[in-house]
Amino acid sequence: MFEKNAGNLQKKVNNRVWLNKGMRTLFLGATLVGLIVLALLFYRVLTQGLGYLSLDFITSLPSPSFEDAGIWAGLIGSIWLMVIVAVVSIIIGVATSLYLEEYAPKNKIADIIRINIQNLAGVPSIVYGLLGLTFFVYMFSIGYRLLAGGLTMALLILPIIVVASQEALRSVPNEVKEASYGMGATKWQTIARVTLPAALPGILTGTIIALSRAIGETAPLIIVGAAAAIYTLPDSLLSKYTAMPIQIYNWTARPQDEWQYVAGAGIIVLLAILLIMNSIAVLVRNKFQKRF
């Protein structure tokens, strides 16, 4: 009787242990799904695009025939866009985070700004496109020009930069600031000479990551009028423009198979730039981040 029970118990325990092991394998498998899809994606893009990728492709303007098509106009357009986005969003983003972290009184207004930024981060990017279309394209009558695209993108990544800068500012310990006050420095002197320099690596890392999100964004640019058929390079803020993801979208959407290879080559260039930007972000963080 007792032995029978013990046998049953042993069986039960064994089952539980086996179930645990089996589920562990299942969980591991699920984790690998993400990694495998990522590997497949890279493999697919490389096999489709590498054959078409050449210096000629990088330095050619868009063209209606796939043998001549290149990504140069998209590349230059994206760089112009990034410059506008970086200037606008860094100034406004860092200033916003400084206000929230250093100056904002603990009141409703500061709370509202905080909650608002959290919600802005969840607004679909295409809605920013509609905002840009109404305000920048029509109301400020910029038209379908670089500046309208840049400003729209700047607003889009503003929440990311604000949150990253806030975290960087918060990581500067109070002792350092108090030492500065103790030397007779004013609030702004302390911020400009102590807090900001100490938080700068964190802010830069966050900014580069935000910019790498912007450089791959397509939907809002389509709405504010980045065009695919642009055969000249932009030479001012009010030029007509195109951008890398716009070119890739346009090539992908064409029915002939050859264009898929062109799109693949464009994606390789885009991913390479993203890789470079993210490496720089990691480098900045590891090299210059101070641990207090």
Binding site: L41, R44, V45, Q48, I215, G216, T252
Partner: peptide, 16 residues
């Protein structure tokens, strides 16, 4: 995976 531009995912969906 979260940092891949969505246009690249679109390409992946359509062609693969």
């Amino acid at each position: 995976l979260a940092g891949i531009p969505t246009v690249v995912y679109g390409y992946f969906a359509l062609t693969f």
